[in-house]
Nucleic acid binder design. Structure first.
Length: 683
DNA sequence: ATCCCTTTATT
DNA sequence: ATAAAGGGA
């Protein structure tokens, strides 16, 4: 039972590194001898962040792809269904006699804790555990400023990454063959990632996307040899298919960032030699987006609560508008702002959104609707094909103005102006909002200003087949000013209370009473009183209008409808207009009929939310010296209070958000993780 | 050169 | 919002 002696095989534990190329853990396993390749599916461990439907679809396909690659190299992928990854690992150890465990690092808060526990538990069993960097150019603990401190702004961080004294490791080749370990006594489980109705909803995804590491590799090559050179010019257009479309591949580690970086750099040198300025600029911009992904891991590692709490403390005092019908209107794309609505419908229909539009819809959510950003983040999590906790947390914190270098909080982006910026001809809006398709470009981004005659000619009746703005921009500005005033007052009061040593009651109770994500029931019930007139062609007008379909897809869609009837009672049923707007690239059109049903996982989420909350609360600790060093279930990274910075005052006035002085000094509640690097790290 | 205006980017 | 960068007189 000791797990075998020195001669045992190695377990390679796959997680979000679903590739055989440039996979250090796999390479180490192969080097050490016989390999047992394992994937453990334990979504309940993710708590509130149980993966969404489209994300699970991707995972399913990616695993199948990996399995067949591994088989062709000599060994199958053993899959385990679990609620406790670590005990499943122990099972595999015991049934295979493995003596070593190899895996690649992850940096989200849950993985940090779980992986640390895995190391402790397996090491205690006499297993040699080694872990590697496969997800980043540089490990977070290797990128520090001149004082050895972590960076607190992106640009400084990225500058440093680009000028590190040593290059990122060169990508590893895939193994030529793998000696299989003995898995005859190791029971694998068949993993189920979707139920019947989800299967139907997912049917169209495969037309637009090909999960799997070799497909990721093809996508990378295609991008580098194609759209990359025009990236700088095109990246501003909401509608163009000129982004890399690598994000879901990257999320699951189907392609290694080091390889991306490496290949893109080669192009850069080439273009630099040719004097191709635009090409170089494009490379820099694309690499920057890779850098943001790196930074998201960096932030997550250094501030493992960043998916739950604002990095700048004062935002915890912001009086969010708890308005579930606004939340619903946003999700359904019925806010009355065409660019926002088009984006939300594309998201709903396809699980995909251009980065620019992500900014537009999330900024609208936070600044105009003033809904709690975590709701929006959770919805992204549930609906995005490339849902990624670290990236999404960074994105939402940036938008919310809760990063030292984020947008200023009192700034409101006007969707009307952004519309003309990112979608100057209104094509994007017309594609996703068929009810506005006949509106002239002059009014397409602000129909509420359009003369009655124009609206009539376009078949639009505001408030009926397309909503009036649910919140006016001016009203939003006013409310935002008031809310900010209130926020600063509360913050000041809390600070005073702490300084007087009264007790941190005010601060802490708010801090740790994050506004709960609405329960699904609450979300789905109380159907909004809807518009009186169905849009032309709509058959169930109480349901949401969604994007137009290509005619070739309508048939599939209708089959889907019948198999999905039980969802009619819920909100998330899509109506399929019959007017076809075909054309454009496959990715855009072929996705369109895909339906989203958010929160299928109610049950699971309810049962498991507690885990996450405990973990987060404990690890974030109070804004005073953390004494909580242990908790149920295992060892966590040990926290240490910021040392000298404690005497420093908080930000002194409203201008503090963007203040240039040290973030950590101004925000001592943001603990640094002190001794993580002391944990066994190899590779 | 210098000023003034426009454009662009912001994680 | 704002600051930096670019362009034109």
């Amino acid at each position: 039972m000791s797990g075998g002696g020195g001669g045992g095989c190695s377990i390679v534990w796959f997680r979000r590194d679903l590739r055989v190329e440039d996979n250090p853990a796999l390479a180490a396993g192969v080097r050490a001898g016989a390999v047992v390749a394992v994937f453990i599916y334990a979504p309940e461990e993710e708590g509130q962040y149980y993966p969404g439907r489209v994300s699970r679809w991707w995972l399913k396909n990616s695993l199948a792809h990996l399995d067949s690659s591994l088989r062709s190299l000599g060994t199958p992928l053993i899959t385990k269904r679990s609620t406790d990854s670590v005990s499943s690992l122990l099972d595999v150890v015991n049934s295979t006699g493995a003596s070593q465990l190899f895996f690649n690092h992850l940096y989200d808060p849950l993985s940090l804790i779980r992986d640390h526990r895995a190391k402790e538990v397996l090491t205690a069993q006499g297993i040699t555990v080694r872990s590697f960097n496969s997800d980043l150019l540089y490990e977070p603990w290797d990128v520090n400023d001149a004082n050895g401190q972590p960076f607190t702004t992106f640009s400084a961080f990225w500058e440093r990454c680009l000028s590190m004294p040593y290059d990122p490791q060169a990508p590893l080749l895939p193994p030529k063959r793998i000696i299989p370990g003995d898995v005859s006594r190791c029971q694998g489980d068949t993993l189920v990632f979707e139920d019947e109705s989800e299967k139907a909803s997912n049917a169209l995804l495969a037309r637009a996307w090909s999960p799997g590491w070799s497909n990721a590799d093809k996508a990378l090559t295609a991008f580098i040899n194609g759209p990359l050179i025009e990236y700088a010019n095109n990246r501003r257009k909401a509608d163009s298919a000129t982004t890399s479309f690598l994000s879901p591949h990257l999320h699951f580690g189907e392609v290694s960032v080091k390889k991306v970086f490496h290949l893109v750099r080669i192009k850069q040198v080439l273009w630099a030699n040719e004097g191709n300025q635009a090409g170089e600029e494009s490379v820099n911009l694309f690499l920057k987006s890779i850098g943001l992904r790196e930074y998201s891991r960096y932030i997550s590692f250094n501030h493992p609560y960043s998916h739950e709490r604002p990095l700048l403390g004062h935002l915890k005092f912001f009086p969010w508008v708890i308005n579930e019908s606004h939340f619903k209107a946003w999700r359904q794309g019925r806010t009355g702002y065409p660019l926002v609505d088009a984006g939300m419908r594309e998201l709903w229909a396809t699980g995909w959104l251009h980065d620019r539009i992500r900014v537009v819809v999330s900024s609208f959510f936070v600044k105009v609707l003033q809904l709690p950003w975590r709701w929006g983040m959770k919805y992204f999590w549930d609906t995005l094909l490339d849902a990624d906790l670290e990236s999404d947390a960074l994105g939402w914190q940036y938008i919310s103005g809760t990063l030292p270098d984020g947008r200023e909080f009192d700034r409101i982006d006007n969707p009307q102006f952004e519309g003309y910026k990112f979608d100057p001809n209104g094509e994007y809006v017309r594609r996703w909002l068929p009810e506005l398709s006949r509106l002239p470009t002059e009014w397409i981004h602000h129909p509420w200003n359009a003369p009655e005659s124009v609206l009539q000619a376009a078949g639009i009746e505001l408030g009926s087949n397309y909503p009036l703005p649910i919140v006016g921009i001016d009203a939003a500005k006013t409310r935002l000013q008031e809310a900010l005033l209130q926020m600063w007052q509360l913050e000041a009061a809390s600070r005073a209370a702490i300084e007087n040593g009264v007790e941190e009651g005010l601060g802490d109770s708010t801090e740790f009473a994050p506004i709960a994500f609405p329960e699904d029931i609450q979300m789905e019930e109380n159907p909004e009183p809807v518009r009186n007139n169905p849009p032309v062609g709509a058959r169930r007008y109480e349901d949401q209008m969604v994007p137009s379909m290509t005619s070739s897809l309508v048939r599939v869609e209708e089959e889907e409808a019948s198999s999905d009837l039980r969802n009619l009672a819920e909100e998330s049923r899509a109506e399929v207009p019959t007017n076809a707007t075909a054309q454009q690239n496959a990715r855009d059109t072929e996705n369109q009929g895909v339906l989203q049903n958010v929160n299928r996982n109610t049950q699971v989420q309810r049962n498991t939310t507690v885990w996450l909350r405990n973990a987060a609360e404990d690890s974030t600790a109070e804004s005073s010296s953390s004494t909580r060093r242990e908790r149920d279930g295992g060892v966590v990274p040990v926290w240490s209070p910021p040392s000298s910075s404690y005497a420093e005052p908080f930000v002194d006035d409203e201008s503090g958000i963007g203040a240039s002085s040290s973030y950590l000094q101004n925000h001592p509640q943001s603990h640094r993780l002190m001794n993580w690097t002391r944990l066994p790290q190899t590779g």
